[in-house]
Amino acid sequence: MTQVKSKRPRIRALEIAFGILFLFTGFFAGLFTNYHLNFKFQFRDTIEPAAFLSTLCTVILAFIVGIIWNRRQYAENSSKEILVKRLEEMQEFSADFSVRAGGDSFFWTDATSGIKRLRTGLSSVGRLADEIHLSLENAFRLEVDAKIEKLDDLITNTPAFWPAGKPSPVTVTNNKIIFSKERGLEVAMAFEDLRHSITAFELAINRA
């Protein structure tokens, strides 16, 4: 299962950098208030109220901004996890669908409902990505969509006319779909292609 890339290490690095910065600031502030050391530059030994309040406000503001930023990051990561989970479900379903399509009892309604489930699943992922303003290249979604279309074409597009004496690639008898050997292989390949495209889509969500 593909995991959503966490942004925690980046936040932790920032926290460490700020810690070091404050440590050095404190160290030099200490040095410059030790007047017996006779540095050229020294802080005044009295606290100016306006400057103190200004510093305090800046620190509080930075703290609040930090909290909001962290919350937004958390919400974004959670949304991505949900999207990836939906795509994982599509992966599992397409694997199961592929097995059924290759079996002896593949019914027409199995095929049509399977295709609909894949199509509506993809559409739902697309809508969710739009809702959270995830900057994703549309190409990934379009590719999965194209693969579902191809699969639909191979499985449920039975010909209106077929020359007599020639074997049809797909026939339907008593609601059951029967593929020719060549078409069966094409269908299996189309499922593989679909799964590959879904994986690429998952990776694109992780990178976004």
Binding site: W108, T109, A111, T112, S113, G114, I115, K116, R117, D152, D153, I155, T156, N157, T158, P159, A160
Partner: peptide, 18 residues
């Protein structure tokens, strides 16, 4: 519905003309 096959709309709507 539970879903349509590709040939459903071709036969039902295209067939109106053909």
């Amino acid at each position: 519905t539970a879903g349509y096959g590709k040939s459903f709309f071709e036969e039902s709507f295209g067939g109106l003309i053909r």
